[in-house]
Every structure is written in C-alpha cells, then in structure tokens.
C-alpha cells in the first residue's frame, strides 16, 4: 500500500502569484483610483471586481450582469464564450486555484478557532442558494428589473458581492475622502455581509464558495465534464474514507469524484493511500518515493 502523499502542493503559491498578477496596479491602492489600461477589456476567470484599485482585468460575473442589464446581448456573447471556455477546460479549478476571494477565505480559515466545523446546519439545502442567486440576481433581475430609462442594474454586484466590498469598496473608501463622504446604507449592508463571511470563514471552510457564489455555480456545472477532473480507479479503492475525511468541503470523492461542489484543491489525492484517486491536471506533487532521480 503506497504511503499517503504528505507533500504540500503549490496551490497557495499559485493563488498568491495569480492574485498579485491580476491585481498588480499597486498605485491604485495608494491613490484610491482604478487601472484604465487596455487589459481591462479582458476578463479574468475568478471573482475579481474590476473596481478593485489593483485590478488589471474584468470580473466575468460583473461583465455578464452589465451585458444583460444593458440589453446589449452581443456584448453578452463575449462573456458567455469566456465562461464556456474556462468552465469546459478548468471547471471549479478556478475556484480552488485562481480566485482571489477564494484565497482570502483559505487564509482566514487558517486562523485558529475553537469550534471549527465541516458544515453549517442545513448544508445540503444551503448549497442550492448559489444557483438561485445565479438565476435571480445575475440573470433575471438585471434583464427584467428595469428603471425608467429601460436600464437594468447588476443586482448581485450591488446587493451581495463581498469580493467587490473587500477588494474595491473598502480600499477605495479608505484612500478616497470624497467617496467616504457619500457612503450610506448600501455600503453598510454590503459590509455587514462581508463581515459575517469573514467571521464564518474562520469556522467553516469557504462559506461563500459553498453557499453563495454564482460564479462557482457556473463553473460547478462543468465539473462533471471539464478537462480538469478527478478519476477513481475502483479496483484500487479500498473504501477507507480517507478522501472524505481529508475533504474540507465534506464531499465524498470516492463516490462522486466530479461533484459540482469540488474546487480541485487536491487534498483527497494526497490522502488516498492506494493511489485510487488521480487527476487529469497535476493538482498535487508526486510523493517523494515516486520521484524520478
């Protein structure tokens, strides 16, 4: 029986490097302004608010809502194509490796907390909330809840998105006195949502990704068929349950290796004692015993 792979993978380094690469306009944080270069026309795969002072690209979810709210469905083709492409290639690998707000939750979960738990009460039902948010706040309301001028609004960005609050609202308010002067109830509401999620993240792994993220909901739909997927060799699987014990999202990779909830962190691969679980993408380093000289 092969030893479990105890080597830590490169995931944290990749997350940090990608967050730095896609939010590299450091001057923006100091001066309270946003980047206006050509790269802003390109979406980045994770939930990365384009009003973040450091953001060098555009959020696909924000762009999609803007397209639907404007009624310019040709604009929506570009964003839809982007989501299809990254969904089909990576699925929720994006969540596990390329999303800055996912990184924030990962770091918060490292904070010692006396009552860490794997799930919240009502976990199975709560996981469906993100699909309702996707359908309602990202698609239907921007399309059909129009103002007097026939324009819609990005409902998820406006009323919920904690990534926008953390990466854009708080830094811009801190650096820009004029913005600070006009903050009101909406900012307070969004800050409250963010604070609750920050506190929850210390106790539960990735509460926003599990229960609320519409972008994760989109990518999750592709998990069963994406190029990046897990494979289970049933002849090698001994049903030990180590993969489930290792999974911080309380999933069972040995039963459903390509669950829509899986963010491809690779913890189950490292925990599997027989090598029954593998992946098409290199999510973990090979165990030291198997490394070639």
């Amino acid at each position: 029986m092969a030893n479990q792979n105890t080597r830590r993978g490169p995931r944290l380094l990749v997350q940090l490097a990608w967050a730095a690469l896609t939010n590299g306009y450091a001057q923006g944080f100091a001066q309270g302004k946003i980047w206006r270069g050509a790269s802003k026309g390109y979406c980045v795969p994770g939930l990365n608010c384009y009003s973040c002072p450091g953001a060098l690209g555009a959020c696909p979810l924000g762009a999609l809502q803007a397209a639907l709210a404007s009624g310019n469905y040709k604009f929506a083709l570009y964003v839809t194509g982007f989501l299809l492409f990254f969904g089909a290639v990576l699925g929720r690998f994006v969540c596990g490796w390329l999303c800055p707000f996912g990184l924030v939750q990962d770091l918060l979960h490292r904070i010692p907390f006396p009552r860490k738990r794997k799930t919240l009460p009502g976990d199975r039902l709560l996981r469906w909330v993100k699909y309702l948010l996707l359908a309602g706040f990202v698609v239907l309301l921007p399309m059909f809840a129009l103002d007097a001028f026939g324009q819609g609004s990005p409902w998820f960005c406006k009323w919920v998105c904690p990534s926008g609050t953390l990466l854009a609202g708080w830094p811009l308010a801190a650096a820009n006195g004029a913005l600070r002067a006009v903050l009101g109830a909406l900012f307070a509401w969004k800050s409250a949502i963010l604070i609750v999620l920050i506190l929850l993240s210390a106790a539960v792994y990735r509460p926003f990704c599990r229960y609320l993220c519409p972008l994760g909901a989109v990518y999750g739909l592709f998990n069963p068929i994406a190029f990046c997927r897990l494979k289970l060799d049933e002849e090698k699987c001994i049903g030990c349950g180590q993969c489930r014990a290792a999974c911080k999202l309380d999933l069972s990779p040995c039963r459903q290796p390509n669950s829509m909830e899986c963010i491809r962190c690779g913890d189950c691969l490292r925990a599997c004692p027989t090598g029954a679980l593998t992946s098409t993408f290199p999510l973990t380093p090979r165990p030291r015993k198997e490394r070639k000289p």
Binding site: K40, A63, L77, S153, P154, A168, G169, L172, L179
Partner: peptide, 30 residues
Amino acid sequence: ALLVIGTRLGGRDAVFIKAVNLCMECIGLG
C-alpha cells in the same frame, strides 16, 4: 467561437468601457 464572435461584435470593447469606469454598485454607492 463565441469569444471570437463576441470580440468582433464589440463585446470586449464594451467590457473595457464598463471596467475602466468606477462601478458605483460594486463599491456600495448604488
């Protein structure tokens, strides 16, 4: 294909215009 078609129809330019202007909704100003 949709990315290419969408870009030719001006989708990327529309994203650019949206992304270079401060999103008041995103930062909580409505």
